[in-house]
Amino acid sequence: MKIIKDKKIIEDNWSHITDDDAISLGNITISLSRWNDEKSSLSSHTGKIGIRLAPSDIIEDISDDLNKISLIGLEFPAFTDGRSFSHARLLRSRYDFKDEIRAMGNFMPDQVFYLSRVGVNAFQLNNSDQLEAALSTMNDFTVQYQASTS
């Protein structure tokens, strides 16, 4: 599967494990609740670990674990749910999270520009045919009124 990362279209090298799947080798993302349940056993995992956050998850709850995490996936159940925009901004500016923040799921290519301005640097669209369109929207504006987070 292809994604956008740092303004390039690349192959996704992460496995996204649902709560029912067994943990696989390599780089994995899991839900926050699974992370909370299996944190200690996952400390011996060989690949990198990413956590997927639902809009209703509270960022503060993972702030102490961020140093063990290499990717935060912000899940969009619906593109109209804007909570993840604030989550991204908080992760970057308040918790100083430097690794990948990835928007996942049901968001629009036309939201990629705003998402990148609040600190999201990777985009996994449900429909990967739209990646080119998404990439091009990142150049929609050359000016802005508010400070961006990156």
Binding site: G82, F85, Q111, Y114, L115, V118, Q144, Y145, Q146
Partner: peptide, 10 residues
């Protein structure tokens, strides 16, 4: 400040 505020569009 409001125009195209990236965090508060949704």
């Amino acid at each position: 400040w409001t125009i195209l505020h990236p965090e508060f569009a949704y």
